[in-house]
Design a protein around this nucleic acid. Structure first.
Lengths: 198, 198
DNA sequence: ACCTGAACACCGTTCAAGT
DNA sequence: ACCTGAACACCGTTCAAGT
């Protein structure tokens, strides 16, 4: 009875995805092995191949899910705070908060192993996240609250900054100075506002 | 005669380090295996254990070497251009150029696998690179050309930006918009100057 | 002091076979 | 349609043995 779901697991794909995230969270990207992800689910190490092309496709799926969540959260911050300068700051805060709250997702999203070029869905989700930033900038340019530089270039500049903070924080490279990441992000967003004002 | 150096290789430690970098450069961090690094040197896969504690110590050594080179190059840019606002920009350019020129080193330096906390030499080299940035900022604060914020905080902000550009460039995330990384870095540095001015 | 070769416990992937 | 189990070619690390 305990092994009733040995065959035809309800939603093995989702379960595998969930377990993969849990595994990376607890023991790092290197600990994500097919055996380790299958065992807690009571499934053989090759069961995964019915749902994903291979191990890297599993990682790409984690990354896709991550980008989808990230886009949702930054858009919510931007739209929920009135699409103004303050809302743009909250967008930056939301970005870094997402990375801190989901370091496993974030690491896979920007890791070496996952190539957006090989997975069209991942490329789409990644592009959507970036587009949210570009849109917020062009909106502010039409307002006259952001200088009329190339919006793509502005977006890359700001993306690099929040991405840099996120990566350094996840890699624990800000801890030696006992930095409050939230504070650093707020400081950076204030300085960025000066940098992109007309 | 061709196998003369089968025993007592002249400087196997250096050769292993070099081969490790070459391997990561050509085939990625995952391709760095003890077998793959030993074979081209005509040495068994376990020979490495005479010179490094284990595989992760080899990676840490690559990272240390990277930080040492990085510090040299940013200091040369800063000192060589007169320690002024322009020199500070060149420091930023030198940072990103280093990452582009040595992506293998850079990826290992900031990868998940290498923990500065476990290797004191790596921690020292990493701290020295960051200190070069802090010093350049306090120098400019004494000049009155940079606002008197907490220099550590300013340094983290700027580090995050150049680190973000470097990471995105290495991960090929700027290619879809056909970005000239050099141009983006110059743009970012100009905007950062506005952000940190008094 | 420095390196080898066998052994061990792992790994991703393929594939014929089972339900 | 979905999953298993054996097989294959890998992997890092340990350790007794060789020079």
């Amino acid at each position: 009875m305990a092994k009733k779901r040995a065959y035809h697991h309800g939603d093995l794909r989702r379960a595998l995805l969930q377990e993969a995230v849990r595994l990376i969270q607890r023991k790092g990207v290197d600990a994500l092995t097919l055996r380790a992800v299958g065992e807690p689910l009571g499934v053989s190490r090759t069961a995964l191949y019915r749902h994903f092309a291979d191990k890297s496709a599993l990682r790409a799926a984690v990354a896709s899910e991550g980008f989808r969540m990230l886009t949702l959260q930054v858009l919510e911050a931007w739209n929920g705070h009135g699409r103004n300068a303050e809302a743009f700051q909250e967008m930056g805060m939301a970005y870094v908060r997402f990375a801190m709250a989901h370091p496993s997702h974030y690491r896979v999203m920007f890791g070496e192993c996952v190539e957006a070029s090989t997975d069209p869905e991942l490329a789409r989700e990644g592009a959507a996240a970036f587009q949210a930033l570009v849109d917020a900038l062009t909106w502010q340019q039409q307002n006259g609250s952001v200088r009329p530089d190339n919006p793509l270039r502005l977006a890359q500049f700001i993306w690099a900054t929040v991405h840099g903070i996120a990566m350094l924080a996840i890699d624990r490279l800000l801890e030696s100075q006992q930095t409050d990441v939230e504070e650093l992000t707020r400081f950076a967003n204030e300085r960025l506002r000066i940098a992109i004002s007309v």
